[in-house]
C-alpha cells in the first residue's frame, strides 16, 4: 500500500509537469489552431539555458533566464515563421513546426552532446517523509508549482483582458479581430506563454530523480502530446486531466514493472500512448475536447 501511495504521489507530480507542457500546447492550439510540434525543443531550449547559466549567475537567475529564453524562442518562431507562412491548411503549419523542431532539436542536442547537464536546483536529492510515504522534495515542489501555475493560468484565462481576447479568438478569430482583438498579439502571447511553461516543465523533468538534462529529454517531453490529445486539444481542463492520467499511468506501470514483466522492459514509456489510443477509440475528440457537431 505504501508503495502504491508513493507511486501515486510521484505519478501525480510528474503528471502535473506533463500538464504544464500540455497546457502550453493547448494554449497555442486554442489561439492559433496550430498543433505545435516545436514544443519539445522549446522545452529543451529552456532547460539548456538554465543548465548553462546556473553556475554563472545562480539558480534563480538562471531559471528566470531560461523561462525568458524559451518564451523568446517561442515568440520568435511565431513571429518569424508561422506568421509569414501563407498556407491553405493548418496541417501544413503543423509540418512547419516539425521543421522548426528538427532545426532546434538538432542544434541543441549537438550543443548538449553526450553530457548530462545538472540544473543546479536547490532541492538536490532530499526526500520528504509523510508517514509511510517517501517522496522526493523536487516532486513536491513540482506539484506545488505546477498547481499554482495552472491555477493562475486558468484564472488569467477567465478574468484578464488577455485571457478574454484569447478565448474570443479561439471562438471565432474573424469576429474577434473585428471587435478589436489583435490576433497577432494573441498568438504571439500564446507562443511566449507556451515557451515559458515549457521551460518550467523542463526544470522539473530534469531534476532528481532524473539524472539531468540530456539528449533524451525530448522523448520525455513527447509524453505531453498524448496528455494534450487525450484530454482534448482545445481544453485547458483536458490538459490538466490528460497530464495527470499520463503521469500516473507511466509511474504506476514503471513502478510495478516487475509484476508486469510479460509486457517487456520499458513498458512505462509506451503505456501513456496505449492509454491515449484506448481513450481516442472511445472518445475521438478527447475527454474534454469540444465535439465537432458535424454529420452529413
Amino acid at each position: 500500500m505504501a508503495v502504491f501511495l508513493e507511486l501515486l504521489v510521484n505519478g501525480i507530480s510528474v503528471g502535473a509537469v506533463y500538464a504544464l507542457i500540455a497546457l502550453g500546447f493547448v494554449v497555442i492550439f486554442k489561439a492559433t489552431e496550430v498543433v505545435n510540434f516545436t514544443h519539445a525543443s522549446l522545452l529543451l531550449a529552456g532547460g539548456y539555458v538554465i543548465a548553462r547559466l546556473h553556475p554563472l549567475v545562480g539558480f534563480w537567475a538562471a531559471l528566470a533566464a531560461g523561462i525568458a529564453a524559451a518564451a523568446l524562442v517561442g515568440a520568435l518562431v511565431e513571429f518569424l515563421i508561422l506568421r509569414r507562412a501563407h498556407v491553405g491548411s493548418r496541417g501544413v503549419l503543423a509540418i512547419v513546426t516539425i521543421g522548426v523542431d528538427i532545426l532546434l532539436t538538432t542544434e541543441l542536442t549537438r550543443q548538449i552532446g553526450t553530457e548530462v547537464l545538472a540544473l543546479g536546483d536547490p532541492w538536490g536529492d532530499r526526500v520528504l517523509r509523510l508517514g509511510p510515504v517517501t517522496v522526493a522534495e523536487t516532486r513536491v515542489v513540482a506539484l506545488a508549482v505546477a498547481a499554482a501555475l495552472i491555477a493562475a493560468f486558468l484564472l488569467a484565462f477567465k478574468f484578464t483582458g488577455w485571457g478574454v481576447a484569447m478565448r474570443a479568438t479561439a471562438e471565432d478569430a474573424e469576429t474577434a479581430a473585428l471587435m478589436g482583438v489583435r490576433l497577432g498579439r494573441v498568438s504571439l502571447g500564446a507562443w511566449a506563454v507556451a515557451g515559458a511553461l515549457a521551460a518550467v516543465a523542463a526544470l522539473f523533468l530534469c531534476v532528481f530523480p532524473t539524472p539531468g538534462l540530456d539528449r533524451g529529454t525530448t522523448a520525455a517531453a513527447m509524453k505531453a502530446f498524448p496528455a494534450a490529445i487525450l484530454g482534448g486539444l482545445d481544453s485547458t481542463t483536458g490538459a490538466l486531466a490528460g497530464g495527470l492520467i499520463v503521469g500516473v499511468t507511466e509511474t504506476l506501470i514503471s513502478g510495478y514493472q516487475s509484476e508486469l514483466a510479460f509486457l517487456g522492459r520499458g513498458i512505462g514509456d509506451a503505456a501513456p500512448f496505449l492509454v491515449m489510443i484506448v481513450i481516442l477509440l472511445l472518445r475521438p475528440s478527447g475527454l474534454f475536447g469540444t465535439k465537432e457537431p458535424v454529420r452529413v
Binding site: 498543433v35 502530446f225 494534450a228 490529445i229 509486457l263 517487456g264 513498458i267 509506451a270 496505449l274 481516442l280
Partner: peptide, 25 residues
C-alpha cells in the same frame, strides 16, 4: 475518425509502442 494534426499526435503512439515491441519481442 481523427483528422489532420490530431491523427499526427495519435500516430506517435505507433512509434513508441512499435519501438517497445521491436526491442522486446
Amino acid at each position: 475518425r481523427l483528422k489532420g494534426a490530431y491523427l499526427g499526435i495519435a500516430t506517435l503512439a505507433l512509434i513508441f509502442v512499435g519501438q517497445h515491441i521491436l526491442f522486446n519481442a
